[in-house]
């Protein structure tokens, strides 16, 4: 294998990664959401969404409707939550939302930050769930939660690059 070939291989790899990155960021701009595709991590919306399902988000609605399934982030908690809007109160400037998981017994008040009694549409939401693909996201859960799978996969990738040049 000569240098030229190696550089070509490196460039191809760089091309794959950068185009994936550009596609992701473009989707982010189109949907106005910093995380336009999310994987469900908890069972609080079962049976609608199970762990590993993929959700497509849209964040250009001016207002949410009651019944919308939204993804929100609470300050100081890193994991985004996918729950349904139970109540909405709005005036011309601002909209307040109370959410609840379909599979939970009570609303999300205990999940919000201290002293916070509503979500603020503008500040807290990452997006509204518009579309749905089952199960495919499970691979990311396996990668992030199962070390054997993670290193097994890394090992496979490494081996394949050694053997199939």
């Amino acid at each position: 294998m000569n240098l030229r070939q190696q550089i070509t291989q490196f460039l191809t790899l760089a091309y794959v990664f950068s185009s994936a990155f550009v596609a992701w960021k473009t989707l982010g701009i189109v949907t106005n959401s910093h995380s336009p595709i999310v994987v469900v991590l908890s069972g609080s919306m079962e049976p609608a969404f199970q762990r590993g399902d993929i959700l497509f988000l849209w964040n250009r609605d001016k207002q949410q409707k009651v019944g919308d399934i939204v993804v929100y982030e609470i300050e100081g908690k890193s994991i985004p939550i996918v729950h349904r809007v139970l109540r909405e109160h709005h005036n011309s400037e601002k909209q307040l939302l109370l959410t609840k998981g379909d599979n939970n017994a009570v609303d999300d008040l205990s999940l919000y930050a201290k002293k916070q009694s509503y979500l603020n549409r503008k500040e807290d939401l990452i997006g509204t769930v518009k579309g749905y693909l089952p199960f495919i996201g499970y691979i990311t859960i396996l990668i992030s939660e199962n070390i054997y799978f993670k290193y097994g996969l890394l090992g496979l990738v490494g081996l394949s690059s050694v053997f199939f040049e």
Binding site: A48, K65, V66, G67, L86, R87, H89, N91, S92
Partner: peptide, 20 residues
């Protein structure tokens, strides 16, 4: 998912509320 909502006006112009 089926839900029964109630919609009622708010205090100011252009404000509204909907609850389940």
């Amino acid at each position: 998912f089926v839900y029964l909502t109630a919609e009622y006006p708010g205090k100011s112009e252009g404000s509204s509320n909907k609850v389940t």
